[in-house]
């Protein structure tokens, strides 16, 4: 019987990858962010997940505007990273878990979601960086991947309510999976940030605190705001909190927070790292 061991959430700012690459973890600018990771490493060593179901958004590597799915579930045997155009190191390839992917797809469609299914899919920094942070010394990823993509790029975006429902339906699918895997749910991106327009550089610690305080015990509180309101509160790219909301739903009804680190700025972003266990 599979077990959902918990949920891991972190930001995926590309420059984190650059900081790792250049050995800057102890640099005064970066240290407050990287100091959030020893508890993640200890927790992963303890709970030993072997599959990750990851909610994230593509940034123009796998998807272009010619075909832009609202929800996309990876069902590939492996997922490579590729050149994103601005000089990040190339990240390690993930092994997939197509059987579990198709089980999730079956479950989602049964629950009246209509995901795009991807038997071939590249993954970008939004997945690679959270894994580089979680498993800094790994030569190969010690864990298989089921990626679930949410459109946070081209409006209309799915509502926060819809993303939470998506996550809850993924939870139902995971709960009915007959395998004996230990599953970790991951949400990446955010928190508040805005890269574009005259409001570039906008962050909102107050809204981020509201999200972090409520996500664990009352995730529905985060779904009261429309996408437009979330953009106003979190910034144009802060809507990546949708990935966190969906991942929270996939963890299951009850959760308790066992770790939280929040620091801004990392690049233009308010960065957070959080661990939940089922409760």
């Amino acid at each position: 019987m599979a077990e959902i061991v918990g949920a891991y959430f972190t930001s995926h700012v590309p420059s984190i990858g650059g900081a790792i690459h250049r050995g800057l973890k102890q640099d005064p600018y970066w240290k407050p962010f990287f100091d959030g990771f020893p508890p993640v490493h200890e927790w992963l060593a303890k709970v030993k997940p072997d599959v990750a179901v990851v909610f994230s958004n593509d940034h123009g590597l796998n998807f272009f505007l010619d075909k832009m799915p609202t929800f996309a579930v990876g069902a590939a045997p492996e997922y490579a990273n590729a050149d994103e155009g601005w000089g990040l190191p190339l990240y390690k390839t993930f092994k997939g878990h197509p059987e579990l992917s198709w089980h999730i797809i079956e479950g989602l469609v049964e629950e009246e979601f209509d995901p795009v299914t991807c038997q071939s899919m590249l993954v970008d920094h939004a997945i690679s960086i959270p894994f580089e942070l979680a498993y800094p010394d790994a030569e190969q990823w010690p864990i298989k991947l089921v990626p679930i993509g949410i459109n946070t790029v081209q409006h209309p975006l799915p509502s926060a309510k819809r993303c939470l429902a998506l996550g809850r339906s993924v939870h139902k699918a995971l709960a009915s999976w007959k395998g004996d895997e230990r599953i970790v749910v991951i949400g990446t991106g955010g928190l508040s940030h805005q890269l574009d327009g005259e409001r570039a550089g906008f962050m909102n610690a107050e809204y981020d605190r509201f999200c972090l305080d409520n996500l664990v015990s009352d995730p529905d509180a985060l779904t009261k705001d429309s996408i437009h309101e979330i953009v106003r509160l979190a910034g144009t790219q802060g809507v990546e909190v949708l990935n966190w909301i969906a991942a929270r739903g996939a963890l299951g009804p009850g959760a308790r927070e066992i770790h939280r680190n929040y620091h801004l700025p990392i690049s233009n972003t308010a960065a957070a790292t959080v661990l939940y266990e089922p409760a």
Binding site: V153, Q154, H155, P156, Q194, D196, G197, E198, R199, A200, F202, H228, V231, R232, T236
Partner: peptide, 9 residues
């Protein structure tokens, strides 16, 4: 939203 353009259809 001031200073903000939504990337819509």
């Amino acid at each position: 939203i001031p200073g903000t353009t939504l990337f819509d259809g």
